[in-house]
């Protein structure tokens, strides 16, 4: 019953220095799935994610969001589109000197008039919503603490709460647990899983560890040199596929 929320057609990215990071990528992403993107370092995973919310301009091909072409959106239309897509990052990318609450509220900037946000006048209902987002990620007792005083796992949860302020239909996660220890990694991944299950938010997540992939993904795609080389069920990645994706000499590392 699920339909395609994103359709990529022949998506291309060539950086100004000539690096061909994405090559004729065609891919459908289904509403409500937990899609994991794997591939070697430099295979184009981050480039793909940033093309999806147009932080990076694709060089060719097209992106359809709920059937609508969003490849060439500009200005307020582009911002309107981005508002429906949350994003979290390996380095969390919080505003470090500000409070947790301030960071969470900044997720709602797209819904506010510019002058109002610059004067810091966040409406009461937004503040309550920010507290609810913090509750979802288990941090409702920390709103006034400075963001950089938190542990890495907590910072990533603040980043998730920030993206929840957008009520996103899609959540992009660029190696969300790559700077975290194994136990914390699972905790963060479980929050993503919950958001996926409870709110039906589509998750597109770059990961390095196959054990995490098998545990959380509903579907996997693999990139190699900017090309799609695998698309399927996480449990179908056997020894042979593993070597095809990561190269002959690769050995799988476990994370528990």
């Amino acid at each position: 019953m699920s339909q395609n929320i994103l359709q990529l057609r022949d998506l291309e990215k060539i950086y100004p220095n000539g690096t061909h990071a994405l090559k004729k990528l065609t891919l459908d992403i289904r509403e409500g799935e937990f899609l994991v993107v794997i591939g070697l370092s430099g295979s184009g995973k981050s480039t793909l994610l940033r093309c999806l919310n147009r932080l990076i301009e694709p060089s060719g091909g097209s992106i359809l969001f709920a059937g609508r072409d969003v490849t060439f959106l500009k200005g307020s239309e582009l911002r309107e589109y981005r508002r429906q897509i949350g994003m979290i990052f390996q380095q969390f990318n919080l505003i470090r000197r500000r409070s947790v609450l301030y960071n969470v509220l900044s997720g709602a900037l797209g819904t506010m008039p510019v002058w109002q946000s610059i004067l810091g006048r966040f409406p009461e209902e937004l503040q309550q919503e920010a507290m609810r987002s913090l509750e979802i990620v288990g941090l409702k007792d920390k709103p006034l603490i400075r963001a950089d005083a938190l542990s890495g796992g907590q910072q990533q949860r603040v980043a998730i709460a920030r993206s929840l302020m957008q009520k996103p239909r899609i959540l992009l996660a660029d190696e969300p647990v790559a700077s975290l220890d194994p136990a914390t990694s699972h905790s963060v991944m479980q929050y993503l899983e919950r958001i996926n299950k409870e709110f039906g938010t589509t998750i597109i997540c770059n990961l390095h560890f196959l054990s995490l992939v098998r545990r959380y993904a509903t579907r996997v795609v693999a990139l190699k040199g900017g090309e799609l080389v695998f698309e399927g069920n996480p449990h179908d990645i056997d020894e042979a596929w593993f070597k095809r994706i990561y190269g002959e000499d690769a050995i799988e590392v476990q994370i528990d």
Binding site: I85, F89, I95, L109, G110
Partner: peptide, 14 residues
Amino acid sequence: GPMEAIEATGASPL
């Protein structure tokens, strides 16, 4: 990083 994150929320350049 924070610039990228805020831009991704659909915020305006200002």
